[in-house]
Design a protein around this nucleic acid. Sequence first.
DNA 1: ATGTTC
Length: 477
Amino acid sequence: MVRKLSDNSWEIPIGRTPGMRVPGRLFVSESLLEGIDPGTIDQIANVATLPGIQKYSMAMPDAHLGYGFAIGGVAAFDREEGILSPGGVGFDINCGVRLIRTNLQKEEVVPHIEALTEALFHNVPSGVGSKSRIRASDRELDDAFLHGARWAVEAGYGVEADTEHCEADGFLDGADPSHVSTKARTRGKPQFGTLGSGNHFLEVQYVDEIYDRDVASAFGLVEGQVTVMIHCGSRGAGHQICTDHLRELSQAVKKYGIQIPDKQLACAPAQSREAQNYFKAMLCAANYAWANRQVITHWTRETFEKIFGRDADDLGMDLLYDVAHNVAKLEEHRVDGKKKEVYVHRKGATRAFPPEHPEVPAAYRAVGQPVLIPGSMGTPSFILCGTKEAMDISFGSACHGAGRIMSRAHAKTEFRGQTIKENLEAQGITVRATHPSVIAEEAPGVYKSSSEVVNVVHELGIARKVARVIPLGVAKG
DNA sequence: ATGTTC
């Protein structure tokens, strides 16, 4: 059913799903392959039937079942002959991760970790339906849809350097709020600066291991240093935008006579009105998510200032980087020796651009894009760098996290939140959540090992390990 | 992921 190409690379041959235009390719170790659901492999094969797909339909080592496309999936489609599909992006448009440096050492933070975690939990609203202190006007919402993190910085939530250290400078061009429904706007307005629920979190961490001293130095990372990781997305706005346009694109599938093996793969020709309307609305959600993470960054800095009695500049709280891991983008890639423009869909996959790529910020141009891979609650997260190999193998992409292996429902029967919390506290990790069930659903045991997943992309060479960070305090919804 | 069942 899958054919081994190398230690971490497997081919899903043409034929697993009728109508496959290219093979599938799954990047996993032999041991991770055992945990991959056959349905996930079917999803990778299904995507290979879509018009204009380039090279192969891929999935990263953290792959698992998603809506239509597998989570952990990467697929690139020809700009003219290809398609755009909301299932290839996911409901949480521009779910992503950012990492803030500090010049604090672990020893300085540990005595304050309970107060710090409590204050972060208090200052950054979290949980399903959580609301912000900010009540955005229609005009501000439009500005955020159009300008992302740049809007947030101009509104006073951060500094100029923050946007320079985001993928795409914290906003994508071409967004058009006229394709965002009133319902999506209503859901989005009160949610700027909120974390949400599920696997989203705000985590205080420390660097415990450096793998590549030169790159770590370029990223401003040293052993023992405290960092803050923020993982969240576009909240209700992005979810509603996806829902609205899925409905439109389900109709478009019939209109354009596209054969799809699964209704969840609703799509339309890339340059059709329907696909472009989705794309312009998706860019609004992507920009909303960058604005959201930027506002959270501001409140995180304020919280540190209060707890440590020093200002954020003095604490060295610079943004290291911000990555999107649920987004579709028009990018230039080399296919069959020729440069071409493709819509790269990354759904639970991180861009991993190499040294010297013009889209990598000047500060990191010599070493490659920072690739931020969050672990599950209580397990290590990793900082990697992008590589030339990623451009050759995976359309400049790597994995995005540990990858869930147990459903939320199952997790709640298997684990007790309070017990998990006590276990984590025994390891020196403070957890603050809206409800114990949130902790049970996100227990470390419901995920693959982040270390094992990261080792696959490192060994393949599609991203290289730079540093590992260990949690000290976690706030989540 | 999500005002967690249109």
